[in-house]
Every structure is written in C-alpha cells, then in structure tokens.
Design a binder for these strands. Structure first.
Length: 410
RNA sequence: CGGGCUGUAGUGUACCGGUAACACGCUUGCAUGGGGUGCAAGAGAUUUAGAGGGUUCGACUCCCUCCAGCCCGACCA
C-alpha cells in the first residue's frame, strides 16, 4: 500500500477532549473516524487490524469445531419476547416508517436467533454437540459510550454458541473455549486473566471473563499474584492484599478491561424456545447451551492501551495492519520503488511512505504513530553501503541491512 | 440518567460587549533533504462563532433553552 493513496490522514495533535490512548492514537493515525460518541468508522488501516484479529479468532474457533455463520442484525420482536429480553435498556428498537411500533431490535446478542435455527436442525442426540459463531456488528444503546473503542454503541463482536446433550459435555466444551480464548488473546499480544464473574441477564450462574489489566479499564478484579486466580469485584469476597482462595498467595486489586466473556447458559434459552432432542433412550430433553463472546473492536482498543508509548502505537506483529513501514529519503525514489516492489513480490505487507515533499521528520513521526513493527529507511547514506536501515518499533536501536538480504531478514 | 467541563476554519487554540485572529494542515512557487525544514504568495469560518431565543444601539463575548463531545458517577449483557 502506498501511503500517498491511503484514504485517511494523520493529525499532528490529538483530538481535544479524548483522554484514552486508544482514542487519541487511533484517531490521530487515521485508523478510525469517530462519527458519533461510541460510533466509529474503521478506515483502511483500522479495518486491516480488525481483519487480522478476526482471522486469528476464526482460526482458533475453527480449531475447536466452530462453524462460521452470519445472522441478521434485525432481530424480530417475537424472538426476544420468547425469552423476556425484548424490554431491555440497551436495546435499540427499529420501526419501519410505515409501522406504528417497533418490530425489530438491532441485534445486541443472538442466543434467541441461533436457538430457533437450531431447533429446526436438531432432533436427536446424534445431532449434538454442535457449535457455530459469527463475527458481526452488535448494537447496544450504552448510556455512556467512552474511552474510544472500549465501550461503543456499535461494536464488532464474535459470538459463539454451543449446543450439547448434557451439562458435562457443555462444560468440556467450555474449557476448550477457555483454551482457545487464551490462545487468541496471547496471539493478539494480550495477557488476559480468566476471571470468575456474574452472569447479568444472560444467566443466573457464574460466568467467566477474560480481563486485561489496564488503568483505563472499567472493571475491577482481584488477581492472585502467585497462581493468577482472579475474581471480578462484583461478586468477589476478596479484597486487596487478602490471601488467594486457591493457593494462599497475595491478592492484588487491579483495574481491567473485559475482552471476552463465556457463559454456561444451561437450558434457559432452549426451554424458552423449545429446543429439545431425543436421547439414546428415546427421552426428550432440553438441549444444554453455552455462549462465548469476544469484542473485536474492544480488543483492538485494548491492544493500543497496552502497547503504546508517548509517540504512538506499538502494534503486536500479529495484528499490525502492515509489517513494514518503508521510508525513502534523499529522493531515492527509483531505488525505493524497486525495494517496495521486491517486498510486495515476496509477500511482505508493506506500507510505503511515498509522499513527496514531506520531510524526514514528518515521516519518522508518522512511522512512530502508526506503530508498524519494522521501519525501513532507504537514503543516499544507506545506499552507499548497499543497505537499508532497519529499526523495530519496540526497540531503540537501528541496524544496516544489505539490500540483497533484506527479504531473508523479513 | 445525575454531576462537572467544553463547543470559534480541516485540526489545535486566542482575543474582545464595537463586527473574527494565530499555528498547523491545504494550494502555488523557490530553496532544502535523517526527526513535524526555510522563504514567499494564496484559498479557507464571513446571511459567521454547535442550534434557537433573550438582554443590548450593537453579542462569538452576557443570560436562557436545546443539541453535541469529553470526564466522574449510576448502569454495563
């Protein structure tokens, strides 16, 4: 990608009022554009990050047998009424111009929809277990959207639903999801703590959240400094400096961001929507269900909160929009174009700063703001050595690399 | 939803009860060429200062209402 053609631009100053790092850097860098409070456009750079995150999630979901589907965002009232979730505060209601009252809600979670679909396909224990997920925009009328991508009215979410013939089978899958989630967050460069939490309107039982420690987080958790056992303050009897229930280690209170949540739903939804199966003995039983969410856009914001410095973002390589930022100085465009083409041919994801008339300082500043893992600088000076200068965003030092061996190093 | 703060050019800001200014960005030209470079010329708010109303001879400025944004709280699936 050539920077001169990128549909976005960088701003020299952070937007006024925004205080969270993710809001400041993502808007300044042109990754996202804020249309309203809690409502964002993902511009090319931001959308590439989203794509990287989505791909990691897909791979891990597919590994545990999840099948990707895509459900409607317009959710009929009758689905939500069946489970008593039509009249909830966060729901947006949708009414056609010709209709007197709202007939749809904008999907804020899809348990009802998928359960209804499943009821058409599941008859026997032989049809179970089964799991499906989607990556889709969710809509929630947040009373207070805040902190950039961390809490929005409209956000990207992966929601996985699983269906089982027994509680035990569901819990087995539940722990597989836990493992998959750990891999996802790890691959995205985040340290997430598996945390015991409340179920809200999803379920009466306890659930588990994946919490990333950050000062801008809205949640408070207690984490054992020894075994990493964690509980959400909402339900915890622990307090700061108390001893861990599991290992006796010291517990610390931390602010954190909830990047994922898994729910053992049991039969709440399958009973409401009459999803039953016939067992081996010919008995009719309610299907046991679980649901599992990851907020992709929130994950992206969290990654910025965790990985940045005063100059800009420091993307983990796995979710960086590009791997390499190529800067050309001294008008060495001909050589620059060659290198760019060479990298493209080798399949290296490269953002080429081909802007003429921009000074070196501006290009370096933007390189730091964008936060791509590797910065390459090609100039008269480096060309004398038949080299290009390489600097990693997360390191201070630079090194000269021979042009002939550049693709090997990348 | 309660509390606080803020709305002036694309962005960030300033001034003043007397008819909108500065920096950056943008356009053009010349110079420059390793950390937001220098000089010059220009466009851009102008039935104008988020919208509406009021006070006043006169309002961007004072007052009211609404709207929007941010922060704190409540809520948070």
């Amino acid at each position: 990608m050539k920077l001169s053609q990128l549909f976005s631009r960088t701003e020299r100053q952070a937007p006024k009022d925004e205080t969270s790092a993710n809001a400041q850097f993502l808007e300044r860098g042109g990754f996202v554009y804020k249309n309203n409070s809690g409502i964002y456009t993902f511009l090319p750079l931001g959308w590439r990050v989203m794509g990287k995150i989505a791909q990691i999630i897909r791979e891990e979901m597919n590994t545990i047998g999840g099948q990707e589907i895509f459900m409607p965002a317009l959710v009929d009232k009758r689905y939500m009424e069946a489970t008593g979730r039509w009249d909830v505060d966060v729901a947006f209601e949708v009414r056609g111009k010709k209709e007197k009252e709202a007939r749809f809600t904008l999907g804020w979670s899809h348990e009802e929809i998928i359960t209804e679909i499943a009821s058409k396909f599941i008859n026997s224990y032989k049809d179970l277990p089964f799991s499906a997920y989607q990556i889709q925009t969710k809509f929630r009328d947040e009373p207070r959207a805040k902190s950039g991508l961390l809490r929005g009215k409209e956000f990207m979410m992966k929601d996985l639903y699983s269906f089982h013939s027994s509680e035990g089978d569901m819990m087995n899958f539940y722990s597989e999801v836990r493992t998959a989630y750990n891999k996802i967050f790890e691959r995205c460069g985040l340290k997430a703590f598996y945390t015991l939490a409340a179920g809200g309107v999803f379920t009466a039982s306890t659930t588990n959240e994946f919490q990333v420690i950050s000062s801008v987080g809205e949640d408070t958790i207690f984490v054992c400094t020894q075994c990493e056992y964690a509980e959400n303050k909402e339900i915890s009897s622990l307090k700061n400096e108390s001893l861990c229930l599991k290992c006796g280690g010291k517990v610390k209170e931390e602010k954190s961001i909830e990047v994922g949540n898994i729910f053992p739903l049991g039969t709440k939804y399958t009973e409401a929507l009459h999803l039953q199966y016939v067992s081996e003995r010919g008995e009719k039983n309610f299907v046991v269900m679980g649901s599992y969410g990851i907020g992709l856009s929130r994950l992206m914001g969290t990654a910025v909160e965790v990985h940045h410095d005063e100059k800009g973002i420091i993307w983990p390589e796995s979710i960086a929009p590009f791997k390499v930022y190529l800067i050309v100085l001294d008008n060495e465009w001909e050589k620059g174009n060659q290198i760019y083409q060479k990298l493209l041919d080798k399949g290296v994801e490269v953002l080429y700063d081909d802007r003429e008339g921009k000074t070196a300082g501006e290009k370096f500043a933007d390189a730091d703001l964008f936060g791509l893992p590797i910065r390459l600088v090609l100039s008269a000076k480096t060309l004398k050595e038949k080299s290009v200068e390489l600097k990693r965003r997360n390191q201070g030092k630079t090194e000269l690399v021979k042009l002939s061996s550049i693709e090997k190093i990348l």
